[in-house]
């Protein structure tokens, strides 16, 4: 067994008295795509935010690339540079063009020259199929395009892992396909990914492992085949059946 790139041990997060999740254990191997599913309010998004230290966990440890990033004195900015994050509502920088959105981190964080940053940013926009839209502002792009720019912005930092927090939940149905397509090709290229989503077509096809979370703990995890065809728990079967009924019948006209 290779050393996992990300290990979560006994991680607990509370807001006041409310326990979001507790004693969570999870390993992510390099190159794997992990899809996290579960009812809303079970702490899936919070888990992602804890991993890139946007939210502080109360106890437990997160190991990333062999280092404990929950340890005191960790350089948070440095950790976040290596962990890409894509948000449900895109969160592009509204006053910057698509190209500038991707470029800014390269200049400010990676200290690339302007020319080098521009070249790298264009490369990333090409990768998500938006080279022709480089000069457009977020307000001039569709939701699907905005989310692809957001993915390009995260990729530009050359992260070792990408976190997707319900990347298609805020999109019109006809725009979901283009974003999933980008994510699918990323997974094929061997990017390590953790994806919180309700897109069961994507999960079935792309995930190496599906993790089912409910009420702050991991109920069950396994390969798509195990989870869809012979889950250990009745609750998993029930949830998967429901969510497939709701979202996953067709993969939004992709196939």
């Amino acid at each position: 067994m290779p050393e996992p790139i990300l290990s979560i041990r006994k991680l607990t997060k509370r807001y006041g008295d409310k326990v979001i999740f507790h004693d969570l254990d999870l390993d992510v191997n390099e190159g794997d795509t992990i899809v996290i599913i579960g009812p809303s309010g079970t702490g899936k998004s919070t888990l992602l935010r804890c991993i890139n230290l946007l939210t502080r966990s109360e106890s437990g440890q997160i190991w990333f690339g062999g280092k404990e990033i929950t340890a005191k004195g960790t350089n948070e900015d440095h950790v976040r540079q290596q962990i890409g994050m894509v948000f449900q509502n895109f969160l592009l920088f509204n006053h910057l063009s698509a190209l500038e959105n991707v470029k800014l981190g390269l200049i400010k964080v990676k200290h690339l020259s302007k020319a080098a940053a521009e070249a790298k940013a264009m490369e990333e926009l090409e990768r998500v199929g938006l080279a022709d839209w480089a000069g457009h502002y977020p307000g001039q792009l569709s939701g699907g395009q905005q989310q692809r720019v957001a993915i390009a912005r995260a990729l530009a930092m050359d992260p070792q892992i990408m976190l997707f927090d319900e990347p298609t939940s805020a999109l019109d149905p006809e725009l979901i396909g283009e974003v999933l397509e980008v994510m699918r090709s990323l997974a094929l290229e061997g990017m390590t990914m953790m994806v919180v989503t309700h897109e069961m077509g994507f999960a079935r096809e792309v995930a190496d492992r599906i993790v089912f979370m409910e009420k702050g703990s991991i109920v069950e995890e396994g390969s798509p085949n195990e989870m869809f065809n012979r889950p250990k728990f009745e609750r998993t079967r029930e949830f998967l059946w429901k969510i497939t009924e709701l979202y996953g019948k067709k993969d939004h006209g992709e196939e």
């Binding site: 890139n52 946007l54 900015d77 440095h78 976040r80 540079q81 290596q82 890409g84 994050m85 948000f87 509502n89 969160l91 592009l92 920088f93 509204n94 981190g105 400010k108 964080v109 912005r153 995260a154 930092m157």
Partner: peptide, 16 residues
Amino acid sequence: NDQLMAARAIGMSRKQ
């Protein structure tokens, strides 16, 4: 705060 969070997510310091 969302814009701030997005900026921090790519590794910018709070000041940046």
